[in-house]
Amino acid sequence: MSHIQKKIALITGASSQGEIGTAICRKLASQGINIFFTHWNSDEVWIEKFQQEILRMGVRCGAMKIDLSDANAAFIIYEEILAKLGYPSILINNAAHSTSNDYLSLDAKSLDDHYAVNMRSNFLLCVEFARRFKKSNLESGRIINMTSGQDLAPMPGELAYVATKGAISAFTRSLSQELAPLGITVNAVNPGPTDSTWMTDEIRNFLLPRFPMGRIGTPDDVARVIAFLASDEAEWITGQIIHSEGGFVRG
């Protein structure tokens, strides 16, 4: 894989140690890519240490605390990254809102809360990326969204989450067709159950037998897939939902 020297990547949702977003930042920085990440409900001391860690890799790094449920979040983020680093050629929509809702508990607020982050902010970040890309001198761009396997099987008890995350797959496929003439690829990654900040020992013990490789996926597994899709080698891959789950067995 050729390195993408001194390009700029925007990654949402890198708020604490052990998260997928954090692993993506580290992986791309290790390839010489400048990093700008967003965070929320995070430890400011840790954020500062993490920025210093990225800077020690020899790249520039910016960060921004922002609530992605703000309708203007996408525009605020782009103004900030342009002021601090320049125009990004890589966008990774990793942040997500998730609470459990079955048919008994689903209500308008739950739907609105999920929609604001998982759909509205995601979609506006994508289209604003493309609009500004047209005005830049960049030759190629990469948009990578995150899904959670809604295309593959039901997720009972997660109605608001699956509805809004599932919409990302449809949006990704259609947007890829519109942006291909600009030289922007648009893909999505489903990493399957990943041992990040949300897993407990009980969940790990339940899931482990379903992984034929004998282990649960890690944030680093996700980051490697993202790094490939962001690379020059992936220029012919667009409109795809990549299910990188280590053979995870459902049912």
Rank of each mutant, 00 (worst) to 15 (best):
S2H: 13
S2T: 15
I4A: 11
Q5F: 14
Q5A: 09
A9W: 12
A9T: 12
L10Y: 12
L10I: 09
T12F: 01
G13F: 07
G18W: 14
E19H: 10
T22L: 13
I24H: 08
C25W: 09
C25K: 02
K27H: 11
A29P: 10
Q31K: 09
N34F: 06
N34L: 03
F37P: 04
T38N: 02
H39R: 02
W40Y: 05
N41S: 07
S42Y: 02
V45F: 05
K49Q: 13
Q52I: 14
I54G: 06
I54V: 15
R56S: 15
V59Q: 09
R60H: 13
C61A: 15
C61W: 12
M64K: 12
K65D: 13
D67C: 11
D67K: 09
S69G: 12
N72S: 15
A73F: 10
I90M: 06
L91K: 03
N94G: 08
A96T: 07
A96L: 04
S98Y: 06
S100I: 05
D102R: 01
Y103N: 05
L104K: 04
V117Y: 02
V117H: 01
N118E: 09
M119K: 03
R120Y: 07
F123L: 12
F123R: 05
L125I: 06
C126Q: 13
F129S: 04
F129C: 08
F129T: 08
A130K: 05
R132G: 14
R132P: 07
F133Y: 08
K134A: 14
S136I: 01
S140D: 07
S140N: 06
I144Q: 00
N145R: 00
M146C: 03
T147Y: 00
G149V: 05
D151V: 13
L152V: 06
M155F: 06
P156I: 07
P156A: 09
G157V: 07
G157A: 07
V162G: 06
V162T: 12
A163D: 05
T164L: 02
G166E: 04
A167I: 01
A167R: 01
S169L: 10
A170M: 11
A170P: 00
R173N: 11
S174C: 14
L175T: 00
S176A: 15
A180L: 13
A180Q: 11
P181A: 14
P181G: 14
I184P: 04
N187M: 10
N187Y: 04
A188R: 01
P191H: 06
S196T: 13
T197A: 15
T197L: 14
D201Q: 07
D201P: 10
D201A: 13
I203D: 11
R204E: 09
R204N: 12
F206A: 15
L208H: 09
L208W: 09
P209T: 10
R210E: 05
G217R: 10
S231V: 00
E233Y: 04
E233W: 05
W236H: 08
I237F: 10
T238P: 00
T238S: 11
I241P: 00
I242T: 09
G246K: 00
R250D: 02
G251D: 07
